[in-house]
Design a protein around this nucleic acid. Structure first.
Lengths: 113, 113
DNA sequence: AGCGAGCGCTATATAAAGTGAAGTAGTTAC
DNA sequence: GTAACTACTTCACTTTATATAGCGCTCGCT
């Protein structure tokens, strides 16, 4: 089902039962979640790269969001036994499905000057 | 600029300066904001209709979100001097631009079973 | 006349989420 | 030796959301 078709179904009334929009928002809850996803859309990133890019995020929240996304199967985490040890985060196939959301947000944000 | 083009620009690196995704998320911040928008996409709604549809929302938050959306120019609020007085909320032209976001969320939420 | 229901909220108290500064443990470059 | 990099954790604090109660009004019912 496409986004447009889903929208037409939504138009019939309130989502009484589990609505796909609500499910998406439950998964993507949290102030920084979609910004982490945005950064990962351009390829795998290390913890410190994300921290630098997401100006203002606290390390606690970044770690929490990455763990949550990993638990959802949206992000893959890989630790390398280098020196100092580095960790890489990468979107899974399923995680890449969020491209459309980020695109739509970017489009909307661009119109809101 | 389309969503895809914006995505390609994002791919170059972190959004150091005001990123459209970040701007969108700032505006749409809050757990219930996008669910309110989802409901309003199918036409104008009254306060009590929204409250019934958004099972679990507290009246305080609903009022706050509607006020915020109105302040952003995304929602139009109209009070009728009927008995009892009714209030109608409706998406503005600018508010309708969020259709793409809700569509993308619905599409993603549908894949996350 | 009195009762409860519906309208669109607001008030107050409490729980959850996020912030900011600091700390941890190991390694390496100056 | 000391400062920095790595990926985080801990703690005290603020911000945000929830739960519950209530307001002033009018309507229909009895």
């Amino acid at each position: 089902m496409s986004g447009t078709e889903l929208l037409e179904n939504l138009a019939d009334g309130p989502c009484v039962v589990a609505c796909p929009v609500r499910r998406a928002l439950d998964i993507l809850d949290g102030k920084w979640t979609l910004l982490v996803v945005r950064d990962l859309l351009s390829g795998k990133k290390r913890y410190s790269e994300l921290q630098r890019s997401l100006e203002g995020i606290s390390p606690r929240i970044l770690a929490q969001r990455l763990r949550d996304l990993e638990a959802q199967g949206l992000v893959l985490r890989r630790v390398f036994p280098t020196n100092p040890p580095t960790t890489e985060y990468e979107l899974t196939e399923q995680g890449l499905a969020m491209r459309g959301i980020i695109g739509a947000l970017a489009e909307f944000g661009a119109t809101m000057v």
